[in-house]
Amino acid sequence: MILLLIHLFHYTEAKRRLRWDCFDCQMGPQYADQMKCNVGGLRRSLLNVEVQLLTELDQIKTYVKISTRFKPSVMYRKFFDITFNGCKVISDMTQGTMVSNMFNAVVKSSNQPRKCPIKQGLIYYHNISIEDALPMFLPSAQLLVQVDFYSRRQLYLNVSLRGEVTEK
């Protein structure tokens, strides 16, 4: 019985690691220019984004879809998807939730405004790491993350990430 409890404790304490293989960002040319998205860090676990916004964004609708694939499967299967009001999330963030942990990991080293409208100019996110915010129920698998951002029902930014989640 004690061995079972020790095993369960270690399982719940197991950390997840991320390694990104591909990071692609596509932004409408009427919204931005000079956009850079790249993977960094020794383990390829950090994300960096810089974008020069050409226009103010006063409404942000966000769609996030996370899909997983287990080896040797060829197809990704939807694990989770959600649509939310981005302006509400950045201004009314409830601390301690999974979403707030992810959001805080993303904006920790950025100049991301904490309310809308998002003014034109340089927006940057440096060394984003969401490993500590990963939920324990996320399985070790290959991962595909797709995020679409809309302003006034028009897609202005598409972000795609492909990588792998493993146990530490």
Rank of each mutant, 00 (worst) to 15 (best):
Q59M: 12
M98C: 06
A141K: 04
R152T: 02
K119H: 14
C87W: 00
F80H: 13
K115Q: 12
I90N: 01
G121L: 11
L157K: 08
T55R: 15
F80L: 15
Q59T: 15
L161A: 13
K65H: 11
E167Q: 07
Q112A: 14
M102L: 15
L53M: 10
S110Q: 05
S100N: 02
R114G: 09
A32K: 02
E167P: 05
Q30S: 15
T94I: 03
G28W: 02
N127T: 02
I2Q: 11
Q30N: 14
L143I: 10
R152Q: 04
I123V: 15
M102Q: 09
V74T: 15
I2R: 13
L157C: 14
K15E: 07
T68W: 04
L47V: 08
C87M: 00
G28T: 13
V74Y: 12
V165L: 05
Q26N: 14
D148Y: 09
R19G: 07
P139A: 01
V89R: 01
L4R: 00
L161D: 09
F149M: 11
D33W: 06
Y150M: 08
L144N: 15
L3K: 13
S110D: 02
L143R: 04
K71S: 14
G96H: 05
V147D: 07
R17T: 13
H7F: 08
H126E: 14
V147K: 05
K15D: 04
P117H: 06
Q112D: 11
N48M: 04
L3T: 07
N111Q: 04
R162W: 04
L157S: 12
V147S: 08
Q142R: 10
V99E: 11
L157F: 10
V51F: 04
Q146P: 06
S45E: 15
L143N: 00
S109T: 12
Q95Y: 05
L134R: 11
E56L: 09
F79I: 06
K88E: 01
F149K: 07
K71N: 14
M35R: 13
Q34E: 12
E13C: 09
F70D: 06
Q112Y: 13
F23Q: 02
S100I: 01
K168Y: 11
R77C: 10
I82P: 05
V64D: 06
Q112N: 15
S151M: 08
M75Q: 09
R69F: 08
F84G: 02
G96R: 03
A14I: 06
T62P: 02
C25K: 00
P72W: 05
L4K: 03
L144A: 11
F149H: 13
F137V: 09
G86V: 08
E13V: 03
D148E: 15
Y11S: 10
F70N: 09
A14E: 12
L143P: 02
P117M: 01
S151P: 05
H7I: 14
P29M: 00
V89G: 01
S110N: 05
L3Q: 12
G41H: 04
D24C: 12
N38S: 13
V145E: 03
N127Q: 14
I2T: 12
P135D: 06
L57F: 06
D33L: 04
F79A: 14
I128C: 06
